[in-house]
Write a protein that binds this DNA or RNA. Sequence first.
DNA 1: CCTCCACCGGAACGTGAGGAGT
DNA 2: ACTCCTCACGTTCCGGTGGAGG
Length: 416
Amino acid sequence: MEENIFDNLLTRPSLFINKEVMRHSHSPTELPHRDREIKAIRFNLVEALKGQIPSNMILYGVTGAGKTAVIRFINAQLEDKGKQIGKPVNPVHVNCRTIDTQYRVLAFLGNSLLESYEKEDIPFTGWPTDRVFDELVNRMNRRGGVHVIVLDEIDHLVKKAGDDLLYNLCNINDDLKRLGQARCCVIGISNDLKFTEYLDPRVKSRLGQEDVIFSPYDAGQLSDILEKRAKEGIKSGVLGDGVVQLCSALAAQEHGDARRALDLIRVSTEKAEQSGEDVVEVQHVRMAQNQIECDQITPVIKTLPPQQKLVLFSVLLNERNGLSNIATGEVYEIYRQACKHYGTNNLTQRRITDLLSNLDMLGLINSKTVSRGRYGRSKEINSCMPISIDATELMINADESLNSVEKGKYRFQSRL
DNA sequence: CCTCCACCGGAACGTGAGGAGT
DNA sequence: ACTCCTCACGTTCCGGTGGAGG
């Protein structure tokens, strides 16, 4: 039989039991170290089971603090219990990053309430918004029970589409009361503690009746989480010494992001698998860390204006030549040479200062102003990219236009 | 204590692209 | 099609500055 390129990979045993468990999209059934938050939300939402309207809430916390996982978990339990005792609860989870206009959110909510015998769907577009709203209210009423609407990344929605939707949703109970028994409560999830500043005061007071703040995980807590998940997702004995600890520590530096921790351990295991090893070692974590950072950085660089890219490239070139703590003047000098090389005209140093502080804000470089006394006052500039990432490759990946002059660039580099 | 380096960063202004209003 | 306005991007000009070295 002819050999297939996938044969080898298929026969090799995987290091995972279930890779899905190691993704951050997976909803776990146990949420270590979120007892306080679960308690607070549970205490409010239990009202739904008593036939009352729970308060609207906003959940705050940095990315990867478990907000989404917690609310999904609680809602699932709530729905089950509601069915059991005959007090129906209908949770709906809306991700406002992908569904980010008033119309789309309303249509999404409405369509999530379709019964099997209902044919007419709310179209993507076409209806006036208030008709969609009326339809939503009708469907909620027909379905009955308590509707729990979770608006994930609500800050994103508000910044993009304003607070009209929230105003309407906050007042939806008035309409529902007129029609029947159905009730509704809104739970917003936000990364941004201060997003309520964008809200109309009336919406603000109605929506933020109860706030829950998720504090970031520390390294120890992240370890617990990883170990719990790894038990389900990765074969035992696969994770080498210190791997979990390292992943937790790295993620703890990244403002306690459990997503990052899970990504790290999953990608590390993939790396070990790819190189045909049976045990994940610390080196695989380093490789994973690099890859994740690279995957994060590339799209940011891609969207940079050309001159900004060149400035960044100049910093990287300096670094590749073994320099660190580069001064603004040095970057500018390289930058000017680079411009000359590519035949673009160069900007003034004043402008470069601004571009550099821009790169600093984007987290692509680190810079601090220092005084070297007699030798002037300047910035010490370092890139934030792992040295193992090849600067040229990174820039070429991120910029098609550089591709055409790639050959010249190598010559340019070797001249430095 | 003073000087003076090598830059920082604010202010004012010019330019062109893109959007709103008419 | 037209004006008006805003915004991002750049330039020119220039006063300001922490500290090593005299």
